[in-house]
Amino acid sequence: MKSMSATPESSAAQVLPFVRRYAVLILLVALFVTLSVSTSSFLTLTNLINILNQNAPLAIIAVAGTLVVICGGFDLSTGAIFSVAAVVAAWVAVRLGNPALGLLSAPVVGAILGLINGLAITRLKIHSFLATLASSLVYGGLAVLITGGFLISVDDGSFTALGRGGVGPVYYAVIILGVFALVSGFLLNYTTFGRYVLSVGGNPEAAELSGIRVDRVKLYTFLYSGLAAGIAAAIGVSRIGSGQPQAGTGLQLLAIAAVILGGTSIYGGIGAIWRSVCGVYLLALIDNGFDILNANPFFKDLTTGVVILAAVALSATRRGR
């Protein structure tokens, strides 16, 4: 008679998909509860609102970056695009005396720079890692060139309203993040474009043979990533009231880390918007928790690195199976 009990292999096969799908949410909830119990400073309305608000620009970049990674690419230029868009916004606001036009110029500049990345990747056939690494250096130099290495301060209440204002206790940045994440999730899950993104990331050769214009899909994902960096830049420059050529330094790596933490496969074809947002706020809680507990910063970096490594290992396990 055959045994009806499940083998260890079959049990693992059932558990692993659940862990991959909800690991970041489980970790986020566990860390939230731990910090709530550990210190009274964490579970306050002011602290929680600040966490949401401060990390909204990064989350916007990570949301669009999810589409790029699902499509099989990497965008290492979002931090530099953020810097260029921010200084252009401040420059336009000061030189033309039009704060609204300055803020609107940031996403436009971001989309243009993202489009240039996409053209370099699809027309010149340069790998996205190398293309965006090179463009990040070019864009970073452009930000310094625009400002001359100095800050461009904007002393205008209408310019800083986007980054500092809100509806009741909810900042505009958080509202923009919510809308952008919902739109992006709809694009990925309920549109033809989203299906194409998943197909191209899963198997670009098969997608090409099935009639999908692979290069065009990749181009659009990088344009969207640039647009997101520009939107984030408009929020960031409005919040601090000045354009800084180094404002976006490191954002691209944090965004990619958050996307991978959210379970998006580094090999493409698998991912979800909501999990990337959870990845951003998991990193934010780690950072906030160590600050509140006044712990050694070395252990913060160590903890973050271990969590990211575990997420990559899960992704590699999926590919191996």
Results as ranks from 00 to 15, higher is better:
S11W: 10
V200E: 07
I112T: 13
L309T: 12
G72D: 01
I116A: 14
A311Y: 00
W91R: 15
L251C: 02
V15R: 13
G73T: 03
V217R: 03
V306G: 12
A106C: 08
T303V: 14
S238Y: 06
I126P: 02
G271W: 04
L113S: 07
G289H: 03
F129N: 08
W274T: 15
A228M: 03
Y190W: 15
F299G: 09
I152D: 06
V87P: 07
S40E: 14
L285C: 08
H127Q: 15
A232V: 07
T66G: 01
G163E: 02
V170N: 00
T303G: 06
I231G: 01
L253A: 05
V29S: 10
A134E: 08
Y172P: 10
C71M: 01
V312K: 04
V217Y: 05
G236M: 09
G149Q: 04
V200L: 08
Y220L: 15
A232W: 05
D75N: 10
A173Y: 01
R20P: 02
V259K: 00
V170C: 04
V237L: 04
K300D: 06
Y171A: 15
P57R: 03
A161F: 12
P17D: 06
F42T: 11
L52M: 13
Y139S: 08
G289D: 04
S105I: 12
A173G: 05
R123M: 14
H127P: 11
S135D: 12
S210V: 09
S199R: 09
N296R: 05
I175W: 03
L104K: 03
V87N: 04
L188R: 02
I175C: 09
A234T: 05
E9D: 14
V174Q: 00
L96C: 14
L142W: 08
L177V: 09
A64S: 09
V144M: 12
L162N: 01
V15G: 04
S199I: 12
V92N: 08
R21H: 10
I112D: 07
L261M: 10
A207Q: 02
R21M: 14
S128Q: 02
A100T: 15
G320W: 13
A13N: 13
G250R: 05
S135R: 10
V68L: 08
I175A: 10
V109I: 12
S315N: 15
G263K: 01
T304H: 01
R195T: 13
L293S: 08
G269T: 08
G243N: 07
M1R: 12
L251D: 00
G166L: 00
V68F: 03
T317H: 12
P99H: 06
G185P: 01
A258I: 06
A228Y: 04
A6P: 00
I49L: 15
R275A: 15
